[in-house]
Amino acid sequence: MEDPRKMKSFLVSTKAVFLKDWRSELRTRYALSALVMFVLTTIAIIVFAFGGESPSQEVLAGVLWVIIFFSGMSGLARTFVAEEERGTSLTLQLLSTPTAVLFGKLAFNVVLIIIVNTLAVLLFLFFFSTFRVSSVGLFVTTLALGSIGLASASTIIAAIIARANTKGSLFPVLSLPLLLPLLMTVIHATSLSSEGAFFSEGLDDFRILVSYIGAVTGVSYILFDYVWKD
């Protein structure tokens, strides 16, 4: 994309895909409702399950990311699945380049998961008063990188499974192995933030997360053309 005109066209088209999905989401609430309802019900179930017990910070960090992972599974696939179910995939293929579609939908998923994760964390802090965030910078960076990583992997998996008959069950099954390195890293970094570690102590985890996002996005860029067209 050395040509500046092509780059500008790519950016304009990517923004248009993002805005289309956002406007569509605000009118249909396809993904947002599923994500928010999942967060609310999961937190309610966990509150009842724990009863009066006070789990360790490490357990709470894991529980927080389990909620985030499964809520992401319930909503992040919608961006491609909705196009397929409504029969608009062909229309989108006629209108834009695969790269613009991929990055527009990735941007949409990143914004969506950041909104939902922020809500999940606020509710989690409210209901689990024993969960501490001693190092705010470390926690926020972990949450941001974890959300972007989750959205990156979910977007390409959603594109792959959108045409399958068993998309509902296939999405979490395919996502779990791909997201496992991400989940282990964010759970560790979240535990560090609860223990009051310095920001520098989380740098190794951040390097892993940035590398993960770079690798998944790069592979998605290479694969998407084939996934999207046939």
Binding site: F10, S13, A16, V17, K20, R23, S24, R27, L95, A100
Partner: peptide, 29 residues
């Protein structure tokens, strides 16, 4: 360079007719 019409092509139901046309232009940059 291509315009395409077919019975199996679907437009965006949640958008108005004009929004669909403007969407076509914006997605094409």
């Amino acid at each position: 360079l291509i315009g395409f019409v077919s019975p199996y092509m679907q437009l965006y139901d949640e958008f108005t007719a004009e929004e669909n046309l403007l969407l076509s232009l914006s997605l094409r940059a």
